[in-house]
Design a binder for these strands. Structure first.
Lengths: 341, 341
DNA sequence: GTCATGGGATTAATCGATTAAGTAAATTCG
DNA sequence: CGAATTTACTTAATCGATTAATCCCATGAC
């Protein structure tokens, strides 16, 4: 049995010293003589006491070494998304290097209450699906770092999405093009659909809306009309949702000349469908993506996209949390001029 | 402030009842009258007490709702591996459905000591890199479920790797073929290399060795000689390691006619390199994979492989842990007759 | 020789709950 | 009606540590 149910108190009795001394032997070497410390540590080894109970320490010390990573969607989905999993990788790398533990937390649950008492902080990747959760995150006294969205008074990590979208669009659109946009999470609907009615420049602050702003600015500069009928809403950056939008947009008459996609997954799905329909890319159709996932660089033709490092984001998020940072960070991005525009 | 530092005791004083009653209002409704319970719960809402502190509960109750998922390698790598991340997805799905939390734990750390006191159990995916960790896992009183390897007295989830390897090999090998094997984690080396000296049927119990057993049985039946020089060791199922082995094996003279790969990642890397060298698959070269990842079905030609459901494994692992199962499970597999053999 | 200093260990309060055991009042039952 | 049982709480021990405050005693200074 590894768990011989030995407590600090037991050990103190056995060695005939106070519990404080045992505790100090493990936590504060300067509080006792080196000799006694050695003696105690050795004795503990011998009798099989492996150090103070962590559950008790968490209560008493008020920290656990556990960092919660709050993922926008449910964990199930996020883990298999290449962008998200690369981000997790970055977070995990830095936490591991600092002996912290990683708790995966779903952003579509109601509350952080069942973990807030014992975790040391939150890294929040994308706006949680559940607004109550976001609200609690702004109120907790535990440190919080947000990524790809903003929360009042919390340090955030972002790229300039408006500018990135503007640049990628500006490079792809030609005068008098017909332009369509395959957007991500633009409205609340759980289905892929066109956006007809919702106000285009709503006061939404999500990255998707910032990207939309950038696209629209570029379109206006290119004398392209902006029409909600040519903007699609896709609820998740996932194959089947994207496929539907791809079919709808490519079967529209007249067909767009340029299609701006808010993620590479969407763009790749569109590209694949276009090829299957014998549409020449970029001859008859230009496509841009967003994110710069590895797969986007492997396809033929390879994707024109905005490249941002999810790994860096993850590493930085963890580091800022551990450092107790208060300032937000704006990360750089790269425009990858691929073969699809 | 969400954390107004209210404790059960404070609340008890304010409402002029005992702490036991407050605690019971939250945990054991049958211990007090419905009326009083309502009154207390309402009052708590009003004054902003959001329920018993979780850290204290963990200590007192002895469980936390946290399950540790111990990944064979470092987390950084595992998250981006398609097989592993699908597995995580399955685990997370079931845990989430049961209101449990998921802690990602690296299998290359020394000890589980810093979490064993507060987690409710361990799911162990693949043999941990660190043998001391494996040893601790056999000794702890907390429940443990292992996947793709075995630990004394612990319920395990496996497929019949020997049989699967035998079948896939039997289907691919032709009489008098020259056969090479690209193996995964066959020996301790951190580099891709050929295996010359190590005993072929060593007493190793890893799934890789079981697969090797299956391959060898098939080879013997097909009158194919087994030579350690034609067996490669690849330390991780990762692109660059696989690429090196692919280059080495395809540049060997004479070139093998059939190459058995212990993972799809390896097989796909090999396939890609073979195509780039204008080697006809399956005309001049047959390739088999292992795992059945999605990408293997999307390539042209698509891969002949052993298909096993990582998602099911993950779900089952979590379920067995929660159920306190003690029996091991053998999961079925499918032989996918693809276009590479 | 007295007093201040400080190293080394102890005492006891505390972290924030849960729960077995106890008690007083209300209810049931023959 | 009185004993037995239930209901509705309360008391107090406990989970397993940390740490401020305190105490004891050996040195060193004057």
């Amino acid at each position: 049995m590894n768990k011989n149910k030995l407590t600090l108190k037991d050990v103190a009795h056995m060695l005939d010293v106070s519990t404080a001394t045992i505790s100090n032997a493990f936590n504060r070497p300067d509080q006792l003589s080196a000799a006694k410390r050695e003696e105690i540590l050795l004795a503990c080894q011998r009798i099989g006491y492996h150090g103070p109970n962590k559950a008790a320490q968490i209560l008493r010390k008020g920290h656990s070494g556990i960092v919660a990573l709050v993922l926008a969607d449910n964990i199930e989905y996020m883990v298999s998304d290449p962008v998200a999993s690369t981000f997790i990788k970055g977070v995990s790398k830095v936490l591991h290097a600092n002996q912290k533990h990683l708790l995966l937390y779903s952003g579509n649950v109601d509350s952080i209450r069942d973990v807030v008492d014992f975790v040391d902080g939150f890294i929040c990747y994308g706006a949680p699906e559940n607004p109550r959760l976001a609200h609690e995150l702004t109120k907790t006294i535990k440190p919080v770092v947000t990524v790809d969205f903003n929360l009042d008074h919390r340090p955030a990590i972002n790229i300039d999405n408006e500018q990135a979208a503007y640049q990628i669009a500006k490079g792809a659109i030609r005068e008098n093009d017909r332009v369509a946009i395959l957007g991500l999470k633009l409205i609340a609907s759980a289905n892929t659909c066109r956006i007809y009615d919702s106000p285009l420049l709503a006061a939404e602050s999500s990255i998707s809306h910032r990207r939309l702003d950038g696209y629209v600015r570029a379109m206006r500069e290119c004398n392209v009309s902006v029409d909600n009928a040519w903007i699609w809403h896709i609820p998740e950056s996932e194959g089947s949702f994207a496929r539907q939008a791809a079919r709808e947009v490519l079967n529209s008459h007249p067909r767009p000349d340029t299609i701006l996609c808010m993620s590479d997954i969407i763009a790749l799905e569109l590209l694949q469908y276009a090829i299957s329909q014998n549409i020449d890319v970029p001859g008859q159709l230009r496509i841009t993506g967003f994110d710069g996932i590895d797969e986007a660089a492997r396809t033929r033709p390879y994707l024109t996209t905005v490249c941002q490092s999810s790994l860096t984001k993850g590493e930085l998020a963890a580091q800022l949390l551990l450092d107790g940072a208060t300032e937000s960070t704006l990360l750089p991005f790269d425009i990858v001029a691929g073969e699809t525009s």
